[in-house]
Amino acid sequence: MDIRLDGIGHSYDDFEVMRDITLDIPSGQIVCIVGPSGCGKSTLLRFIGGLERPQIGRVLQVGDVPAGCLNPLTYIFQDFALLPWRSVSGNISLVLEDHGIRGEAAKAIIADVLDRTKLSDFARALPKQLSGGMKQRVAIARALAVNPAVMLMDEPLSALDAQTRELLMDDLVALWQRQPFTSVYVTHNLQEAVRLGHRIVVLSRRPGRIREVIEIDTPISERSWGDKVCQAKHDQLWKLMRDEARAADAELLHV
């Protein structure tokens, strides 16, 4: 299943936040969206998952939803969005209960996703007992449980410290290698984009438009720190973004 964005534009009141965004998200690829703050990257992600409606343009689902997929468009949020009163396994069973998956069937799925995210020992822990990185892994496990066609990740590593971020990036790479997933990955961190993205979409400052789409051909598993191609792409991205980011930073906030 692919996703197609067709001429998306949006304003809040008379305040235009994005204009004419047309983009294809092909199956099996990770598409990173980067841009200066306030360029509407998170809003765009909410459009893709149907949590908000764009004023102009359409978000299209191309092709059939794969079999066994409970929730085709599944988010991973920056602030984890775990229910604090449910244990790790309770948080995962939450998203299965509404699909009528209970008892043994639910247990099997929960055990599988906890194993894939290396959380098997923490099934009964409450979110307050977990570190930030573990919380985000629970959120990833929860997303895997519904077998998504597309994972919509909204700055998933931004609330974590640098070391944890590295570890989780490795985990995401490992997960993708094991079973390639389609993903839209919004971030302001260029290193994450260069590490995880097959394509990196650079948005301009407000009103957000697509400035450039950069492709990285190096397979995700072979990318590493100090890799020449990655470093070059990172520098290229930063050159593209620096002026935009500076201008965006100098803008007055209309709140």
Partner: peptide
């Protein structure tokens, strides 16, 4: 509200969101 958005994004029913979130 982010928890409620989460519930919606996973396709939980209105009643489930009220009861469980």
């Amino acid at each position: 509200r982010t928890l409620i958005r989460m519930g919606q994004s996973f396709g939980l029913s209105w009643w489930s969101i009220v009861r469980k979130i």
